[in-house]
């Protein structure tokens, strides 16, 4: 299996960041579900998808953890959230 990480450094502008997020999520839940998941996150926070930026990583991580825990359990979903947060810091 391929390693699971997000290359935030390559996100030069907003769309790239969203693309990188979708790629990160797609490795877990597939491309279509990943796109829909981000749209739902934006809808809940009254955001445009292009408004997403690394500042939302904490909230997004919690949102993601709640969605993934049904498959992986809470601890692993929390670890995935941690991956997202750490990747955003690098």
């Amino acid at each position: 299996m391929t390693p699971l990480w997000i290359d935030i450094n390559s996100a030069g502008f907003m769309n790239s960041y969203v693309n990188a997020l979708e790629q990160f999520l797609a490795r877990y839940i597939g491309a279509q579900a990943a796109h829909h998941c981000l749209l739902r996150f934006c809808a809940k926070r009254n955001l445009q998808i292009n408004d997403l930026n690394p500042l939302y990583n904490h909230d997004l991580g919690i949102f993601l953890r709640d969605n993934l825990s049904v498959f992986t359990g809470n601890r692993r979903a929390h670890a995935i959230m941690g991956q997202l947060a750490r990747a955003a810091q690098t």
């Binding site: 490795r27 877990y28 839940i29 597939g30 491309a31 279509q32 579900a33 498959f71």
Partner: peptide, 8 residues
Amino acid sequence: SLRQPPIA
């Protein structure tokens, strides 16, 4: 329909 998500 979700193209068989890896996690599922």
